[in-house]
Amino acid sequence: MKVLLISSLAPSLLTFRLDMIKAFQRHGHEVIAIAPEHGQQWEEKFKALGIAYYAVPIARTGMNPLEDLGTFLRMIRIIHKIEPDIVFAYQAKSIVYGCIAAKLTGVNRIYALVAGLGSILHSHRKSSIKTIIVKLILKTQYKLALACCKRVFFQNPDDKQAMSTMNLIREEQPSLIHGSGVNLTIFSEQPLPEQDVFLFVGRLLRDKGICEYMEAAKLVRQQYPQARCLVLGPFDTNPTAIPKHELERFVEEGAIEYMGATDDVRPYLQQCSVLVLPSYHEGTPRCVLEAMATGRPIITTDAPGCRETVVDQMNGFLVPPKDTAAIAEKMIWMIENRERLRWMSQQSLRMVRDKYDVDKVNQVIMDTMQIQPMEAVKYVGGDQRL
């Protein structure tokens, strides 16, 4: 069968969906990908993995209706050309335009993965007229797109319930999975460093809790100046992204060390003793699963997608969202309770192996999508038998 994956970001396919792609290929199916990045380098990267690649401009945060119409029409043309048996889309605009385009071109087996609802749908505070209009448009688009799907995957029960409450999915559609999973061969147990090193990993967005982390780091280093507080991740075009000068202020004050962005987080996880992610909402944070797989305790928020990764006081701590003092308090506790930290690190390993192994997650996805291994055809006496 031809399985088409649609994403708003090509690197995301290679980072978050590669294990799933390989699972499809091991079952004997052809995988095709659509993403916005164009150029020979991307075609070659996907070709090396045995994946046909098509570039379609998708403005992740853009609000130009003419650009979006162009994306939609091009999506229709390419899907019609590919003639896939199955379409799997994730990220907001990929779901909206990919699923509707697939339905219009006659694809029946369409699936979506809602890996977090994003800032607009999660917002409960008083909004501007513009935000209210954007939220209404997004909900309408989601409703139309998800109506095209056989099943919709969610990475946490909060997002599933929210979509259901907003009447955006049918009762029989949702399927809950444990995030994207983590490859336990690539991410394995690493010894804890002797020094107290905290690490934030993620795009530098306010909604990721980067501001609270930096403020907490400042408080921690006032009391324990030997502690290191690292920040790893790229700047972004998202409306909630922080400007460069804001981060540089904390670097100049000595509160944090900015490590830049990377394609391989493992050397930084190896350096740290605790991962801190004070995000306001997630699908299921991949960086947390990767940290758990290396044997790191977690400090994260009691918020959608984050709370599923931590049993409070077992493999780390849950703190209220936007609570700088609580984050700093738990970071200091980790410094002062080294033996307990080591015990927590083992609980992270146990949890990730039991619940978040990528092979287990992908098997649930394939079972739900009814993707079976292609049986070899044997010829016996002129008869074809499976």
Rank of each mutant, 00 (worst) to 15 (best):
P11A: 00
K22L: 15
K22C: 13
A33M: 10
G50T: 11
Y54R: 12
A55W: 10
N64K: 01
P65K: 09
L69M: 14
R77N: 11
K81S: 10
A89G: 10
K103I: 07
A115L: 03
S128Y: 08
K135E: 14
N156Y: 00
N156F: 01
P157V: 06
M163Y: 02
S164T: 05
M166C: 05
S175D: 07
G179C: 03
S188I: 01
E189A: 14
G202E: 11
L205T: 05
D207S: 12
I210N: 02
Q223C: 10
L230W: 14
G233E: 05
P234W: 12
A241Q: 12
E252H: 14
E253D: 11
I256R: 07
E257L: 08
Y258Q: 02
A261E: 12
D263E: 10
D264M: 07
P267A: 06
Q270W: 04
Q271E: 12
L277S: 12
L277C: 07
E282M: 03
E282A: 09
G283I: 02
I298K: 00
I298D: 01
T300V: 04
T301W: 01
A303Y: 00
V310T: 13
V311T: 11
G316N: 04
P320G: 02
E329A: 13
E329F: 08
I332A: 08
M344Q: 15
S345M: 06
V361Q: 07
V361L: 06
I365L: 10
M366R: 13
D367L: 08
Q372K: 15
M374R: 15
V377M: 12
